[in-house]
């Protein structure tokens, strides 16, 4: 794991101003940012840990907790909202038994909300592992969840 981190840091020449870019690449590869990784980044970039935590808890894309194997996103952009995104989010949340930004206990699903996916004509939209669905009802959602390994 730390080998990956070092490789990414080196690709940016361990420059302090590349901190956010480095963390993005690490997040992309590991899918979350465990504490030893943040300590390594701090040490290699010679930045204090409080700054690293400030940055990683400030930007929404960084996750300090492990993510589920499947990702379900519900768009809560304005267009989807006026077309009933909160009801959709409620249905998904109820079906999974978790709130947004949470992961199921079996680490199977992570539920996220996103703001505008650029396909407002489909709204309200749910995305399961990259597949878009327009306003699924409770039965549709239960079937989709059932299908996931």
């Amino acid at each position: 794991m730390l080998g990956t981190v070092d490789r990414i840091i080196d690709s940016y020449g361990a420059r302090q101003e590349a901190l956010v870019q480095i963390l993005l690449d690490i997040q992309h590869e590991l899918r979350w940012l465990p504490r030893p990784v943040l300590e390594r980044v701090a040490a290699r970039l010679e930045l204090p840990l409080n700054l690293i935590y400030n940055v990683t808890t400030f930007y929404k894309h960084f996750s300090l907790v492990p993510q589920g194997r499947h990702s379900i996103s519900v768009c809560v952009g304005t267009a989807c909202h006026v077309r009933g995104a909160s009801r959709l989010l409620g249905r998904v949340s109820e079906a999974l038994g978790i709130k947004p930004d949470e992961t199921t206990a079996d680490e199977k699903f992570t539920l996220k909300t996103v703001s505008c996916l650029g396909c407002c004509a489909l709204g309200p939209v749910m995305v399961l592992d990259g597949e878009y669905m327009s306003n699924p009802n409770s039965t549709d959602i239960a079937e989709l969840i059932e299908k996931c390994e």
Binding site: G84, R87, G90, R91, E94, N137, S138, T139
Partner: peptide, 10 residues
Amino acid sequence: CTKCDTCFMV
């Protein structure tokens, strides 16, 4: 009823 809107939709 949890007001999930499913009945209204179907």
